[in-house]
Design a protein around this nucleic acid. Structure first.
Lengths: 117, 117
DNA sequence: AACGTACTACGATGCCTATCGTACGAGCCG
DNA sequence: CGGCTCGTACGATAGGCATCGTAGTACGTT
């Protein structure tokens, strides 16, 4: 085989230099998307879309993943019928050192706070 | 005089516990508002609305300041005819330690990056 | 080939929002 | 008082967006 096991067509991702802070913040300002990113960060790496059990339809789920990808927050790759999602930690940490961790920490704190309320 | 020099009516602010991360991120995901917050952070404290020279009308400026206030990012107080604005650093740092600084650092980095482009 | 699964595309809907303009209110100053 | 400045309120407009449902495509499995 000449091409790796990346299988079929790949999806458009912004290059590292094209990632804008406003876009990242907007992407994370939606509860559903923040939740997705939190799960991705917690579970390490590479989760399929279907792994997430969100209280919205699949159409909407697809939409949220696309927003995250287009903002440069996640990387998406087809593997068979599954679409694997991973945080773009390297790019984000390079562009905005400490930001992702601060955001995840803030989200975690708020989750605890709201749970205990 | 019974009441302090706070002059007239005060504006509704969310209490610290009511501040939501998503709301803060949404507020900061607008370029104009991010710019306002950056100026507020840079210039220390308490700037009047008219101090800002934004490329939008006054109506729109008012709107952005209100969004920031309602998200819990800034505190607004009337002083005479002027309306003074200050970052709610204490509350934000308490709720989300390190987040504001990380955001400001990220915004600063991006500003440099885009300027040098 | 036939089927099932994973995800997408498209259109609709209702809400939110960034922007403007104009008209108004509130405080200061001559 | 009369005017000036600062900011607000309100209505309009146009675009964005979160959500859904249905129909369809891509891939693996049998």
């Amino acid at each position: 085989m000449t091409t790796p096991a990346v299988s079929s067509r790949d999806l458009p991702h912004p290059m590292r230099e094209e990632i804008r802070l406003e876009g990242v913040l907007h992407a994370l300002s939606d509860p559903m998307r923040l939740r997705i990113v939190r799960e991705l960060a917690a579970d390490g790496e590479e989760l399929s879309c279907s792994h997430f059990d969100l209280p919205v339809t699949k159409s909407t789920t697809t939409h949220h993943f696309r927003v995250l990808r287009e903002a440069g927050v996640i990387r998406q790759v087809y593997r068979g019928t599954a679409k694997m999602n991973g945080l773009r930690r390297d790019d984000l940490d390079d562009l905005f050192p400490g930001l992702l961790d601060a955001l995840l920490a803030a989200a975690g704190r708020q989750a605890v706070r709201l749970r205990d309320a």
